[in-house]
Structures are given as C-alpha cells and as structure tokens.
Amino acid sequence: MAVSTYYGWRAQAAKPSVRRREDAELAVEIAEIHDVSGGTYGSPRVHAMLRRQGRQVGRKRVERLMRDAGRQIAGRFTLIASTPFAYGTTEQRTAWRSLIATPEAMLRLHQHSPGTLVALDEYLHRRSSGMIDSLSQLIRGAAILAIEDGTEQITRDLLDLVPVDFAAEKAARSAPPGQRKRRNAKTAAATA
C-alpha cells in the first residue's frame, strides 16, 4: 500500500465527508424506526416512514444503510405464506386455546396467573386475525411491557398497547366483508 493511501484514509476517518455524516444521522433514524416496529419493518416500510416524516431519501440508500447495520433480512430468507388459524367450530376453538396455552406455559412472569391468556382466546384471535406469528408477537410484546412496568402479568389492557403486525392487518383486510362486519361489531360490543 502506498503511504499516501494510508494517510488519505486516516484523514478521511478523522474528518468524514458530509455524505458520510448524513449517512450516520440517517442510520440512527432508521434504527429508531426499525426498533419501534419491533424489528418487523424492512427497508420499504422504513423508507415510507422516512418519506412521511418529510425526509427526502432514496430507497436504495435506506436499503444500503439497513444492510450495513445488519437490519435487513427479507432477502436472505424464503417467505412462506400462511393462512389464518380457523376459529369457527368448537374443535377449531379448542385447538386455538391449546395453541395459546403453549406460549403461556413458557411465560416466566411472577404475577401472571396460568389460564389468563386462554380465557382471552376470542380477543386474541380477533387481534391476531388468527395468524400464529401475530399471536406470538402480541404475547411477547405484552410480556416485555409487563416486565418494564413491573406488574409481571399480562392483562387485556396491556395487550391493547401492543400493535398488531403486518400479517394480522393483512389477514383482517382480506377477510370477507360479512366477517369483517361481525369482527367490528364484536370489537364495538367488547369495548362498550
């Protein structure tokens, strides 16, 4: 390596260019958006959020900064489409309750009573739209909040604070119109 290359590199590290400083600031904003989303937002959604906030930034620049920070995973995995868990028959409801009981049994919260989440089966199905990964995210998010606020128990009020993910939103939007009306009516009745 030439001596001038070394000294050029050292000078650049000591006084980064305007673009590099802007990238560092933008990387912090990207990290905040990514963390607030629970790590679920990829570069398209992060880019959209930045645009909504008035930042004029290119999609590829966001992709590069996320990739450099290790925050972009979608291109490295094969996505498997899943369908919502059915909840119409007695057997399906029993299976859903059994599904809820499994992560609930693994909770290590000091004040949480076993069976609390199973009793909220209809509510959890409505919030997660029957998507198993969304259910997992709801329970995990509520458990984190329960630890942070010191209550060490998951309640419906705490679950209400956890935002649903994209899969649950998409499943709710793709539900037949009659099913959406019933779901909305049940939600209104439950909150009244």
Rank of each mutant, 00 (worst) to 15 (best):
A2R: 12
Y6C: 07
W9K: 14
R10G: 02
A11C: 02
Q12R: 13
V18R: 13
R19G: 06
A24R: 09
V28C: 07
E29A: 14
I33P: 01
H34S: 10
G39T: 02
G39R: 05
G39S: 04
G42K: 05
P44D: 02
H47L: 03
R51M: 10
R51S: 12
R52M: 06
V57W: 05
G58R: 11
V62F: 00
L65V: 03
Q72T: 04
Q72S: 14
G75D: 06
F77D: 02
I80V: 14
Y87A: 04
Y87H: 11
T90V: 14
E91G: 06
E91L: 08
A95C: 01
A95K: 06
R97V: 03
R97L: 03
S98Y: 06
S98T: 13
P103I: 01
Q111Y: 10
H112N: 04
H112G: 09
G115C: 12
G115L: 08
L117Q: 07
A119E: 15
A119R: 14
S129F: 05
M131R: 07
S134E: 08
Q137P: 01
G141R: 12
I144K: 14
A146N: 06
A146Y: 00
E148V: 08
D149V: 05
T151G: 15
E152R: 03
Q153F: 07
Q153N: 11
R156F: 02
L158E: 04
L158I: 09
D160F: 03
A167I: 07
A167C: 06
K170W: 04
R173F: 11
A175D: 08
A175E: 14
A185C: 11
A188W: 08
T191R: 15
T191Y: 10
A192W: 06
A192I: 07
